[in-house]
Computed example of a mutant assay.
Amino acid sequence: MRLVGIHHTHPSGAVALRGADLDVDPAVPTVVRGGNGAGKSTLLRIAAGALAPTAGEVEDVPEVVGYLPDRFPAARKLTPRRWLDHIARVRGVDVDDAADRADELLTELGYDGDDDEPMADLSTGNARKVGLVQALACEPGLLVLDEPWN
């Protein structure tokens, strides 16, 4: 994947990126480093396909990209299973296949949360495990992790 001349201006008018270039080999871990407010999360959202650049090109995008944002969206009222089913539907993946893969991954990661409680009520660790599972369950050709040490 290549990001070429990426610019992004937020609706507020704040410029997040000016002419950023990045070459990513999906088989090689790549770290994007910089200070707070440098545009790292914006660049990762663009790489994951969750945000369109204002200008520039994203080339050679893998068919499936898994993305773990730095924070979960407002849908944290959903239970983990409903969240994972929702993400599978959004991606057009068979829900039963995705559920089987999610169960395997949750077990592997040592998830011990309650499947009937809203994600907002899970421990931080269990919520992050659900987030990682939603990024991995689609068997991505590229995995984008924002703030992976959280």
Rank of each mutant, 00 (worst) to 15 (best):
A127Q: 09
V133E: 07
G141T: 06
S12E: 06
R128T: 12
R101K: 09
D103L: 12
L78Y: 03
L43I: 00
T107A: 15
Y67M: 07
R101A: 06
G34N: 03
Q134P: 13
L122H: 03
Q134A: 13
G66H: 03
V130G: 01
H8A: 08
R18T: 13
D23R: 10
L68C: 09
E108S: 15
A14Y: 14
D60N: 05
P69R: 02
D115S: 13
S123G: 10
T42K: 03
T30W: 05
G110W: 04
P62L: 06
G13C: 03
E104F: 12
A135P: 02
R71M: 11
R81S: 14
L43M: 03
C138E: 11
P73N: 04
N150V: 14
A75I: 06
R2E: 14
L106W: 02
T107Y: 14
A47I: 08
S123C: 09
D103G: 14
A38G: 09
R91P: 08
A48S: 09
Y67I: 02
S12K: 09
A135T: 06
D23I: 11
D112M: 10
G113M: 07
A127K: 09
G113E: 01
T30Q: 10
A102Q: 01
G5W: 01
S123Q: 07
W83Y: 12
N36L: 15
V15N: 01
H8K: 07
R71E: 15
T124H: 15
M1I: 05
K129W: 10
N150M: 13
D96N: 11
L17D: 09
D60Y: 01
E104V: 13
D60L: 03
D121S: 14
Y111V: 07
G39D: 06
R128I: 12
E59Q: 15
V32T: 06
T9C: 09
A135K: 01
G49H: 08
G113A: 10
T79M: 08
M119Y: 01
L106P: 01
L51A: 10
V58C: 01
T107E: 13
Y67P: 00
V133L: 07
V90M: 09
H7Q: 09
